[in-house]
Amino acid sequence: MATPRPLHSDSPAAASSSSNLLLSPPLLHLADPPPHTVDARLVDLLADQLIRSLRDSAQAARDRHARDHRAVEEELDALGLGAPRAGTAAASPRPTGTGTGTGGAGEDDAAVDEAVRSRLDDLGFKVGWATAERLARDRPRFPSLSTSSSSSSPSAPSPSTAASSAPDPLELVKFLCKDVWTALYDKQVDNLRTNHRGVYVLLDQSVRSLRGVSVPEGRDDEREVTRWVAAVLAFPSGIIRGALSNLGVSATVTAESAALPQATFQIKAGRAGGL
């Protein structure tokens, strides 16, 4: 009668060969896939289609609000309940001029641009929050500010102080520049500068959304490029705010582009807490 073979071999070579056969490269790729949260093509689509759609939507909402306001005033005038004649000019709504937002520069375009930037910033905030949540879930805790202070102080901090110590904001910004930016843009931030007082400057030499900025025909080129760049940079600015907010840092982000396709993001961060 044949002796059954053992399930586990004592030979290291045999164990190594069996594990190599089981853990093939495709299986390892499926077990630990790269953390891509947003497809790279989505960013290009954002700059070309989403901004135009949001502009049209904001302009349509503004025109609809102006029409409704005029209709209410006309109804009040018909009932004799309108505003006094002296305040009519101040209370009357400003004419929109054009319903498609293709007019010249003015307050109407500025209001539409502000609405578009606000919506793009909100979208970026949600993406940045979710990306930081996913990437920071299984990583070690960030170094805290109390680590450096406790090494220089002769007395050790109390347990309550150590438990409530906040992570170093610089480490959080580095995590943003490396992990979050790579997951969304397939590259790291090219340069990071800080004054160690809560102000950080991120430089990206080639923002994907700014590589092919197109200007609609019939518009002032320089002004339209400025408007377009401001709308494009609102999305990554929201990503920065959302990622840092998920990590416990409230921040104000200002973005600008000195020369396309590069962009600079200035972060004014508050004190981290809650981690």
Rank of each mutant, 00 (worst) to 15 (best):
Y200D: 01
G212Q: 15
R119L: 12
S144M: 05
S206Y: 10
D190P: 01
K126H: 05
D186P: 00
D190E: 01
A110N: 14
L202F: 01
S155Y: 12
A130L: 15
E114F: 08
A163W: 04
Y185T: 03
G198S: 11
S155N: 03
T147E: 06
G124R: 01
R208L: 09
D204W: 06
L123F: 09
P159D: 02
P157M: 14
D122V: 14
T182Y: 02
S158D: 11
L192E: 00
A166C: 13
Q188E: 03
D138T: 12
L120A: 06
S151K: 15
T161G: 05
L145V: 09
K178H: 09
A136L: 08
A183V: 00
F142R: 06
V201F: 08
D121W: 08
P143T: 03
P154N: 10
G198M: 02
V112K: 01
V213M: 10
A162S: 05
D190A: 01
L210S: 04
Y200F: 07
R119Q: 13
S148Y: 02
A132M: 06
A136M: 10
D179F: 13
P169A: 04
S144Q: 00
S152R: 09
T161L: 10
V199G: 08
L135N: 13
R193M: 03
L172Q: 04
A163V: 04
S150L: 07
T194V: 10
W129R: 15
D179G: 12
A115Q: 11
S209I: 03
R141G: 05
R119Y: 08
T182L: 06
R137T: 13
P157H: 13
R141K: 11
P143E: 04
S118C: 14
F142V: 12
T194F: 04
S155P: 05
D186I: 00
R139N: 07
Y200W: 06
F175C: 15
Y200I: 07
T161I: 10
R141P: 03
F175N: 10
V201Q: 07
L123C: 13
T131R: 10
L120V: 00
A183N: 00
V173R: 05
K126A: 10
S151E: 13
L192H: 02
L120R: 01
A132P: 07
V127C: 14
V201L: 07
A110T: 09
V199E: 11
V173K: 08
S160Q: 00
S165L: 00
K174P: 06
P167F: 00
L123M: 11
S164M: 02
G124N: 02
N191E: 11
S118L: 14
D168Y: 10
R139C: 07
S151V: 15
L184D: 04
K126V: 02
K187L: 13
V173N: 12
R134T: 09
A163S: 03
S155L: 10
D121T: 14
A111T: 07
V180C: 05
E133Y: 06
F175A: 13
P159L: 09
R208E: 03
A166K: 11
L135Q: 12
K174N: 15
L120M: 04
R197A: 08
A166H: 05
A156H: 12
L203H: 02
S158M: 11
S118V: 14
N191Q: 14
D138A: 08
S149Q: 04
S158C: 11
D138Y: 07
G212Y: 14
E114T: 07
V127F: 08
